[in-house]
Structures are given as structure tokens and as C-alpha cells.
């Protein structure tokens, strides 16, 4: 991910920069530490036990994160899947058991597609899906329209300015997402910053209703995810060989045309990466529609939340989650992996 790449490249510089300081406080201190740890009984005991079972260090390195992810990431989805087929009941937990033992050896599987049928029949859910995709898509396009000129401007700034400008793009990312969304409430509400300003200037007499509209949701998403768009675009534009534009100009291509014929196609990777980074989290967004959107701006994340917390309907919430996985997350995930592989192949 681009944000991570940025962090990482910053980190990369630091490595060799520290080289001078390391000088004498060398990593042989670490050797000493290792020797000390090894001398301890438990370490030796543990490593011997592992070796007895044919576990090399390599296997241990792989299996620790593996087991964690299997237990806490993969298994939960199987449970969600299971509960999405269960009946609602009152009590805790609020669903019927999926597997019941009819007798000691006969397992009784009860598949209940009722929850999915319910999702399909109720227009609320279909609208929420469609609305999520449209909102995320529209916000992504807006982000691209604002982000591309910004990234272009930064990439064409003096080198000494570039890092500062990038830092300014990154800074909001590190500050609380919730608080940045909250800031918009103060700006957009009826007696908020914009309305107060316009009314005091006499442009309008009545406050414009902006909070709790779709407009506010778009604004919130664009605002929150703009850094995710700018960074990959910047990386792509910065890598662009400027002599290509000179060659285009030399061959009689005007700057605007060169931009569309050369710059845009060659920064396609950045455009796709940035759009993904905005679109994916925006689709499942809960906080922004909940705080800025009105009752009409239903997005699927918010529907799931409300099914779960307000209606306490765990099976419906699970069915919403599974539908969301199949219809949205899975295609995106596949697309991203295919794209990643393509990029890897080009390298």
C-alpha cells in the first residue's frame, strides 16, 4: 500500500544514515545479548523441545503468524457463515444453534436460507448495496480529480519542497480519523462555520442544509481518503521520465495533449492503486455516513451496524456481512492480487 511504501522509504534512508553512529556501539552487543539469552535454561529447553518435534526455526517463524491468522481471521468467517444460516431467537447468543445432535451419532444440519431471502426481498438492503457502491465510486472520482493536480504539483515542485509537501499530505492521516470527520460537523451544520459566514456576509438569509445529506458523505469520504489517493499518484508521477514529455513536445505535441497522451497513460498504475485505496475502505465505511449522512444515506456498513447493535439481529447482520464479502470484498481482493501480480511481472 502506498502509505506504507512511503513510510518504508522514509525508513530506508534512516538505515544507512545511522551507520556512522553505530560505529562502536556495534550490534555485537546483540551477540552478547543472544549468548545471554541462550545461556538461560528456558530458551534451551524450548529450542530443544522444538527440535525434538522436527520444528526448525524456519517452521516456527512461519507457523506463529499463520496460526494466529487462522484462528483469529479465518475461523471467525466460518462462524459468521454459520450464523448467517441460523434462525433468530431471543436470548444470548441471539441465534439458534446450527448443528444439533439429534442423537449421539446423528448430526442434524439445518441450513436456513431465510436470512438471505430476506435480504434479497427487502429493498432496503439492495438499495444500501447500490448506494454504497455509488457513493464510494463517486467519491473516488472526486478524490482523483482533486488528488491528481495536487500530486502533479508536488512532484513538479523543487526537490527541497517535495518532502515537506508530502509530509503535509501525510499529517492528517496520523491524526484521529474520528476527529477529522467530527470537524466537518462544526463546519457544515446549520449554525456552523459556512452558514454563519455566508449569512454574515448577506449571501443567504436561510442556512443551507448540508449536514445529514449525501453531499456531506461525499465530502467526508473525499476529505478522509484524499491522502490515500495523492501518495500513489505522486509516486507514479515522480517516476515519470521528463524527457518523454520533451520528446513529445519536440515531435510537435502541445502540453495539454502531451498530458493526456503521455502523462496519464504512464501514471495509470498510480491512478488504479490510488482509486483502489479510496474505493475499498469507502464501500464499507460506517463512521462517515453515521456522523455526516442523513437517514437517507444508507450505506451497507451502517446497515450492518444497525442490524447488529440496534436490532440485535446477529443472523441478519452475518448474512449482510457474507453478502458484502461475496459481492464486494472478494472481487476487489482478487482484482488487487491479479494487479499486484501484473506489477510484479513488470518489474
Amino acid at each position: 500500500m502506498a502509505i506504507l511504501g512511503f513510510l518504508e522509504s522514509g525508513g530506508g534512508h534512516a538505515v544507512s544514515r545511522n551507520a556512522r553512529e553505530v560505529g562502536d556501539s556495534s550490534p555485537f552487543v546483540l551477540t552478547g545479548l543472544m549468548a545471554w539469552i541462550k545461556a538461560l535454561g528456558p530458551y534451551r529447553w524450548a529450542s530443544n523441545r522444538l527440535r525434538d518435534r522436527g520444528m526448525s526455526g524456519r517452521t516456527a517463524v512461519i507457523s506463529v503468524p499463520y496460526l494466529w491468522l487462522l484462528l483469529f481471521f479465518l475461523v471467525p468467517f466460518l462462524i459468521v457463515l454459520k450464523i448467517s444460516f441460523s434462525d433468530i431467537r431471543l436470548g444470548m447468543p441471539p441465534y439458534e444453534p446450527f448443528v444439533t445432535w439429534a442423537s449421539a451419532h446423528v448430526m442434524d444440519l439445518k441450513f436456513n436460507f431465510g436470512n438471505y431471502a430476506f435480504l434479497w426481498e427487502d429493498a432496503l438492503y439492495r438499495n444500501a448495496y447500490a448506494n454504497s457502491i455509488m457513493t464510494a465510486g463517486f467519491s473516488t472520482i472526486l478524490c482523483l480529480l482533486i488528488g491528481y493536480p495536487m500530486a502533479y504539483g508536488i512532484a513538479r515542485s523543487k526537490p527541497s519542497w517535495r518532502n515537506l509537501l508530502l509530509l503535509l499530505v501525510m499529517l492528517p492521516f496520523w491524526t484521529s480519523f474520528l476527529l477529522r470527520v467530527y470537524a466537518w460537523i462544526g463546519i457544515l451544520k446549520n449554525n456552523g462555520l459556512i452558514n454563519n459566514l455566508l449569512m454574515s456576509m448577506g449571501v443567504i438569509d436561510e442556512p443551507i442544509v448540508m449536514l445529514q445529506t449525501n453531499f456531506a458523505v461525499y465530502l467526508g469520504i473525499v476529505y478522509s481518503y484524499l491522502p490515500f489517493m495523492v501518495l500513489p499518484l505522486y509516486t507514479a508521477i515522480e517516476k515519470l521520465d521528463l524527457t518523454l514529455l520533451e520528446a513529445a513536445a519536440d515531435l510537435g505535441c502541445r502540453p495539454t495533449k502531451a498530458f493526456f497522451k503521455i502523462t496519464i497513460p504512464l501514471t495509470k498504475g498510480g491512478i488504479v492503486a490510488g482509486s483502489m485505496l479510496v474505493f475499498i475502505p469507502a464501500v464499507g465505511e460506517f463512521v462517515i455516513p453515521a456522523l455526516l449522512g442523513g437517514p437517507g444515506s444508507l450505506m451497507i456498513g451502517r446497515v450492518l451496524w444497525e442490524e447488529f447493535f440496534n436490532n440485535r439481529s446477529w443472523p441478519i447482520a452475518s448474512a449482510v456481512a457474507i453478502a458484502m464479502l461475496i459481492l464486494l470484498v472478494f472481487p476487489i481482493w482478487i482484482l488487487q492480487r491479479v494487479q499486484g501480480r501484473e506489477m510484479g511481472a513488470h518489474r
Binding site: 471467525p76 464501500v283 464499507g284 456498513g301 458484502m324
Partner: peptide, 14 residues
């Protein structure tokens, strides 16, 4: 790429 609501829900159910 997982929406937070799904991760949250699945962890709770686990």
C-alpha cells in the same frame, strides 16, 4: 481490504 464492520462482527462472534 476487509471492511471494519465485517472484521469487528466476525471477531465478536468468534
Amino acid at each position: 481490504v476487509m471492511p471494519e464492520v465485517i472484521t469487528g462482527l466476525s471477531m465478536l462472534l468468534l
